[in-house]
Computed example of a mutant assay.
Amino acid sequence: MLPQQIDCIVSKFPSLSDIAKEDWETNGISVWALPPNQVLHEGHLLEHAALMLDGTVRVYKVSGSGREVTLYRIHDGECCPLMITSILGETQYEASACIEVPSTVLIIPIAVFRDWIDRYKSFRQYIFKVFAERLLIMSNLLDSIHFKSVRSRIAEYLLRETAPDQPAVTMTHDQLAVELGSAREVISRTLKTMEQEGRLQLSRGKITVLHRESLLELVE
């Protein structure tokens, strides 16, 4: 691992600043460039840990009927808590992960990854922080799916993904259904009703927010 590569990695993951120089020279540590649409399927036994240096990975679950629900996304300077669970528990990866855009990841053999967690306090604290943050995200996701109406969840998503000066989001009804863990038919029917109420404008592959205030009224 070259010094400039290490500097770049540490800029993304400050918790790795204590890693000794000789540890960076361990066989198997490398930086990989990953193309979009590459998928790691649920049930895979991991041989490496991956820390995101650049790009985006969508982590999702697929039901027995084939319906997808997005759990969360991993961005620059982040890692997947389900990956950590799989590595530390020596179990299969419990979700699927898809590279959404060209991405770069730091690859660490799992034996080295476990060793670093044991020996380096700052890295261990970072791992605990990842667990805590993602646990909150998962709790909010479950709360949203089980206790909020589809109208409310659509409103929340659109308010989060748009802005007053950028009121449109480019996505299909299928994609929105995947994001919210619902059926396409339910999403399409609800969007059509919201359009008839004057809250949204629907066009092919795009949803435009017409009145943000009216969407705020739907948030539960």
Rank of each mutant, 00 (worst) to 15 (best):
S103K: 01
R124K: 05
D54Y: 09
L16F: 05
H146Q: 13
I145M: 08
N37Y: 05
D54N: 12
A33I: 09
V130H: 07
V101F: 10
R119N: 14
V112T: 10
R134K: 14
R199Q: 03
D54C: 10
C79M: 15
A183K: 10
T193F: 11
L176P: 01
D118I: 14
L40W: 06
D76H: 11
V10E: 00
V130K: 04
D7G: 08
C79S: 15
Q196G: 14
K12S: 06
F13Y: 11
T193I: 13
I19K: 00
Q175T: 15
V186M: 02
K192S: 13
E195I: 02
H41K: 13
M1T: 12
K192T: 13
T190E: 04
I19E: 00
C80I: 05
S144H: 01
N27W: 05
T172M: 08
M1V: 12
F113K: 01
P164C: 08
D23F: 05
E25H: 08
D115R: 10
K148D: 10
R73Q: 14
K121D: 14
R204M: 09
E47I: 02
S139H: 06
M194C: 04
Q5S: 14
R212A: 07
G55F: 11
I107P: 00
L51E: 09
E195Y: 01
R199E: 02
L136A: 10
E179I: 14
E156T: 12
L34T: 07
D7H: 08
V69A: 14
I19P: 00
I74P: 00
R199V: 01
M171E: 09
E197K: 10
F147Y: 14
I9V: 13
T170C: 12
Q175N: 13
T91H: 13
Y93M: 05
T91C: 15
L202C: 06
I84H: 11
Y72D: 04
Q166N: 13
E25I: 01
V112R: 08
R151Y: 09
P35R: 11
G77F: 08
V69E: 15
P35T: 10
S144T: 09
I84G: 01
V150T: 06
S139K: 12
L141W: 01
E25C: 09
Y93L: 05
L53Y: 06
E217R: 12
G181A: 10
K129I: 12
N140E: 14
D76M: 09
P35N: 09
E220H: 15
S182W: 07
V209I: 03
T26C: 02
E25F: 04
S188I: 03
L34Q: 06
N27G: 11
M171N: 07
A95C: 05
L141H: 01
E94G: 13
I19C: 00
L45F: 12
I127Y: 05
G28I: 01
A111L: 09
